[in-house]
Nucleic acid binder design. Sequence first.
DNA 1: CGGTCATTTGAGCGGAGTCAAATTGAGTGG
DNA 2: CCACTCAATTTGACTCCGCTCAAATGACCG
Lengths: 214, 214
Amino acid sequence: MTTMNTIARPVSSSALPTVSSIFPFNSSAPLTTFDADNEIYAPGQKARGLYRIEYGAVRLYHMLSDGRRQVIAFCLAGETFGFEATPTHSFFAEAMTSTGVRTYHFTANGKDQAELLGLALRGMLSAQKHILVIGRQTAVERVAGFIVDIAERQGGLEHFDLPMSRLDIADYLGLTIETVSRVFAKLRQSGLIKLRSIRCVEINDMSALRSLCA
Amino acid sequence: MTTMNTIARPVSSSALPTVSSIFPFNSSAPLTTFDADNEIYAPGQKARGLYRIEYGAVRLYHMLSDGRRQVIAFCLAGETFGFEATPTHSFFAEAMTSTGVRTYHFTANGKDQAELLGLALRGMLSAQKHILVIGRQTAVERVAGFIVDIAERQGGLEHFDLPMSRLDIADYLGLTIETVSRVFAKLRQSGLIKLRSIRCVEINDMSALRSLCA
DNA sequence: CGGTCATTTGAGCGGAGTCAAATTGAGTGG
DNA sequence: CCACTCAATTTGACTCCGCTCAAATGACCG
């Protein structure tokens, strides 16, 4: 049951995970499962611990009152989310596909604290880097960077499945679904990527893709 | 968004500061001073601890190779910055005005760890909220939210000085200097704010300003 | 008072958004 | 295996918010 959505996971220092992070503990909390698009938690709910994804994928997002949505992070298998600076959650967490998570609680134990601190610091850095992407990069740069990022987090294989829809990608990159679609088309027409299917991307020219990221 | 980050000095659980945070320790490290626009650290340099601002203000930013800049956070007096997920710094830190900072080092001591964790978590949340602002809000919403944020962090007075230039504001909000200037003009013409001087803002209608934040 | 730099204002452009229609594709049932 | 349905995605046409380029104004300082 460990490998369903794959994932090797060599954490290199340059490839930093999202808000979520590789979970450093051994443990065996009970497994909770969620179907696609089911809510794991919502803003205002009391935070009850950390969630480690056994299989599947999760989106964390904000929502404005008029419906505008901003996805903060995608968390993949092996990664951890649920950190909070306050006693209550600040975001929505939703399964993107059928997903299984284990919940963990931290103790005041020094080792736990140190590990949690590392996760929080990496989460902060990841969010800060995303600010640059959204604040100063063009649509092509954002999408190219996104593809490279997901490719690396999936283990760096030449092809991989996107666990998220075009709408999710758009809301993550601060774009619209149409723009994301057009950029994918452009990258495909330029020969940098191939779309084996709508959700399966094959990278033909990784270095060109990287140079597009600015 | 109504609460960009916010908040006056006493850190309540609901009130979170920027990347930087209110420093919870008593100590008396030596004071280091920087003139306006002087570098405190740069990406790649070895991180040597945390910096608490005694007076002045600091900007943390990213830079793309073609000169595009994204300010990640403004840190004001009393706040702390310099957290890193890696052994080296990831950003530029620069004094915005004449600034004095004290450097601190954390020990493996449990209390220190716990405090640092809190700072990191608040920094992460702050960055995540900024992603929403930059990814999904209009120019007017961003500037209105920014003014409210700074007003609250300056103590919630009816008027206050902006420690940063229009260019800094633009690079923080993912806009251009011209757009920031035009939005300030619009807010002034609408009677929501008054500009006592180019750097001094007076808020005439805080609730209208808040409702503009979306 | 003149010079320099920051900011504002104006005019026009363009990248990404909006609105709408066409196409693809995953299911579903016959 | 095929026909049909419905949702997701793609593509097209056009719009507009924020950007670019440029000039005017204002603030500060020797």
